[in-house]
Nucleic acid binder design. Structure first.
Lengths: 159, 159
DNA sequence: TTAGGGTTTACCATCGTGGGAAGGTCAAGC
DNA sequence: GCTTGACCTTCCCACGATGGTAAACCCTAA
């Protein structure tokens, strides 16, 4: 099977298939005499597995581990569960971070007239030298802004 | 003020300050005779504005617009509100996408024994050739998997 | 045989951030 | 004065996952 056919069958772009091979996520494909990559059903199966894991937001690094477990017939399901749980935790962290951003913005937007006048609490707030929590560390149970920001949007998925 | 002091005061790293200057988000800083960048209180103020906007998840491109409005004393608050609303919409889309991923994973995890045996519904599901909706287009009101994936995690914020 | 489509590699871009090297500058202490 | 350490400068590289393009090669059907 050509890379194009494998791509269609697995729903992974040819570009990405070559990339996955390059970074070692998948083993180098067999080649025809003329240098074309040749794929088997099993290869497509693995690519599709990858594709579905990506759709669930797993990073390539995490998928490396998932593939390892997938191929390990003596795996312990606890290991898979732990990987998945870690990923869920990460997702939850990022969701939480974005919810906070959105909540802050929604609160600001509610106070903005949104008319022809220049006064705007949104800009006003961005301008303020730290309104709510400012003193460096601790006090309330609020998540440190730094942490919020860091957790915000790693692992892009724009294909 | 040195770039180091401006960095501390604005909570924007020196690296980022230079980068923002390079991409034109902020005007080139004045220089001392020896070539050091020199910042005023106003410059720090602007950097801090940027920092706060980044913390709310605005991209540099969006902040360009926000800064434009900030400097425009004859702005209409409606314009600011529209920008903010668009950003909220984008955040909501990404949150929704990640919630779906997390929900799927949580459902799978509930079915995983998590013990020493190899059987695992998580791997099993990743292995399946598209369980629920498979036929190419439309049918239920489900969001196309493609769209979900694309909206997943743009705009990283890892500093 | 030729035309059109698929494939190969190689490079560039994204976006925002950090890291580091090589060299210049400044201020404090001797 | 000179040294030392902290700072600054520019320039390049890396990340992660993906898309784009270009030049060259291959395959197949007409």
């Amino acid at each position: 099977m050509n890379i194009g056919e494998a791509s269609k069958a697995s729903k992974v772009s040819a570009k990405m298939i070559r990339y996955y091979e390059q970074i070692g996520l998948i083993p180098p494909a067999d080649r025809t005499d003329s240098g074309y990559r040749a794929y088997t059903q099993d290869d497509v199966h693995r690519l599709h597995f990858i594709r579905r894991a990506r759709d669930l937001g797993f990073s390539v690094a995490e998928i490396t581990d998932l593939l390892g477990l997938w191929n390990d017939k003596s795996r312990q399901s606890a290991d898979v569960k732990r990987l998945a749980q870690q990923h869920i935790d990460e997702l939850d962290r990022r969701i939480e971070s974005m919810l906070e951003m959105a909540a802050t913005l929604k609160a600001l937007i509610r106070c903005c007239a949104g008319d022809e006048r220049p006064d705007c609490p949104i800009l006003h707030t961005l301008e303020q030298p730290d309104t709510s929590d400012d003193e460096p560390e601790a006090r309330t149970g609020a998540v440190p802004r730094r942490a919020r920001a860091s957790a915000a949007g790693k692992k892009p998925r724009a294909h």
